[in-house]
Amino acid sequence: MKVRILTAIMFFVAVSFISAQSLNWNSIEKANSSQVYLNFGFDFGMTTQLGFALKLKAKKPILLVSDISVPMGNELNDYKFRLGAQMQVLSFKSLKTSIQYMSILRRYETNLVRQIGIGQMLSMTTGIHKEGWSVAFELAYDASVASHLKHTDELRNMYSNIQDAWYRNTGGQWQIGFQASKKIGRIELNIRAGAIDARGEDVDALLPAYAGLGAVVWL
């Protein structure tokens, strides 16, 4: 039964999406506290991400995670807010596998459109987690469940019948990559990078890759 459940989880992960924070589960198992993390890198634009993870008391380590990221620029009208949980599902010596589920709220505004997107992301990370360092492979799927599009007069002047409305199932992106971390004192430095592939036959993003540097601080 356990094998069936795990197989189902792995299958779900395989058909879903990612953007996990970099984590050394070896550190999490030993820690009794929460963490804040700061990431900087390319994620559909140069972004800065600030997050908080609360460790829950359970048989297996579980983290409640929330973060917000904003792209570079002089206007604070674009952001991505995520709320979810991350838990370890497999552990064999130093080899550990975790899954993460995140609900996502995105906002994007230009002189032509304001988009509000609701999405969800499922990710799986598996790798070697040693005392002080880790390397892991990550796979994720980010689904845009629905997007509300509201257009400005500038775009409406081009097409007066353009519809402001909710649009369903507007997108999906696979992410596949790696992450690595090194702990120095209470700070864990990490690096992530990988490729992005749009779902099915959808056209890929203009810059279909992600990369970032980050730091996790144990409180």
Partner: peptide, 25 residues
């Protein structure tokens, strides 16, 4: 220019909508 508002406006929208049909693209 990766650190510029306009460049990020250009690439940030890719996470909201993907498609393979002419109307979406």
């Amino acid at each position: 220019k990766l650190f510029d508002e306009s460049t990020n406006d250009f690439v940030y929208q890719d996470q909201f909508i993907t498609g393979d049909d002419h109307n979406t693209l």
